[in-house]
């Protein structure tokens, strides 16, 4: 069962193996303090979920750490470099998947990939290989010559992801990379992100999809009003929030009647109020409709002609 965490857990101090260390980071826009004394450290190879309500300061934090914004105060080190000063040296080593679809609609998928590959300094045969890899990873090989403004939302999302990975970054910031797409494309994007994590890439992942964070992230940082209010593994967050009072979910195997389960628990002295049938809708949807990408059969007009 979900529990609400209100306990603040201090971020552990940084070590030599840290990909990212942030101390007392602040950024204000006028009178609004978007980031207000943020502390954060992320180990190399770690996947950290950065959660928080809208306006919590997540995107501003990512903009500072990815060199787009200067902080007003505090210190930040990303891969051992100061994002406010390192500029190009840091940009070569990080990837950023923006929340918005930041692609040129008038260019083809391949042209978009080639453009960003060249700007990241990937040239010659390496460029051909990486663009080919990216088209394959995005499931867009068959549409590589089509203009992006003819793509469905899911196709754009997949391309949006791989454009940030062409140069093989050591650390990737992902700002809601699965927002607004169908389950097939969401699953496809998510599998690519999981593959990145498995390959040892450090990931900072912001999303409103709690399930994605549970599935992917080694650690979760919850931000609110520009600060980190909780930091730890899912289990640590449960415990820190008073795990004794947290409800638990039982998975009943086929053939077990819910009422019988309640009776057995009661006989064992375990208090249970009832067993609520709960389904993972996304799993059901994917099992019924399959995991195959549906780029070519969008009948609602979202996808145009190539």
């Amino acid at each position: 069962m979900q529990t609400t965490t209100t306990t603040s857990i201090e971020s552990p101090p940084g070590t030599g193996d840290d990909a990212l260390v942030v101390r007392g980071l602040t950024k204000a826009f006028g009178s609004t303090r978007a980031v207000d004394g943020l502390n954060l450290s992320v180990a190399k190879g770690e996947a950290v979920g950065l959660l928080g309500p809208n306006g919590a300061g997540k995107s501003t934090t990512l903009s500072i750490l990815s060199t787009l914004l200067d902080a007003d105060g505090g210190t930040a080190e990303v891969l051992g470099l100061d994002p406010g000063a390192a500029g190009p040296d840091l940009r070569r080593r990080i990837g950023v998947v923006p929340q918005d679809i930041a692609l040129y609609g008038g260019l083809t998928a391949k042209e978009n990939l080639e453009l960003f590959a060249e700007l990241y300094g990937v040239a010659g045969s390496a460029k051909r290989d990486r663009v080919s890899w990216a088209l394959d990873a995005a499931g867009l090989e068959a549409r590589s010559g089509s203009r992006v403004d003819t793509f469905s939302g899911g196709m754009k999302r997949r391309l949006n992801l791989v454009c940030a990975l062409l140069h093989g970054p050591e650390l990737v910031f992902l700002d809601e990379p699965t927002a607004g797409v169908d389950p097939q494309s969401r699953n496809h994007v998510f599998e690519q992100v999981e593959a990145l994590h498995a390959a040892g890439t450090t990931l900072i992942y912001t999303t409103h999809q709690m399930g994605e964070v549970e599935r992917l992230c080694d650690r979760i940082v919850i931000m609110d009003r520009g600060r980190s209010i909780a930091d730890g593994t899912l289990e640590e967050l449960h415990q820190a929030s008073g795990g004794a009072g947290a409800a638990r979910q039982l998975r009943l195997l086929d053939g077990t009647a819910p009422a019988e389960a309640v009776r057995v628990l009661a006989d064992a002295g375990i208090r249970a109020e009832g067993v609520e049938a709960k389904r993972d809708l996304e799993s059901i949807f994917l099992s019924l409709t399959g995991r195959e990408l549906r780029d070519g059969s969008d009948a609602d007009g979202e996808e145009g002609q190539a």
Binding site: S66, L68, G87, D89, V96, D100, A102, L119, C163
Partner: peptide
């Protein structure tokens, strides 16, 4: 407005 400018700025050479 489309976000591509920031994406260009995130590359090491375009700024």
């Amino acid at each position: 407005s489309e976000g591509t400018l920031d994406r260009l700025r995130l590359t090491p050479s375009a700024g």
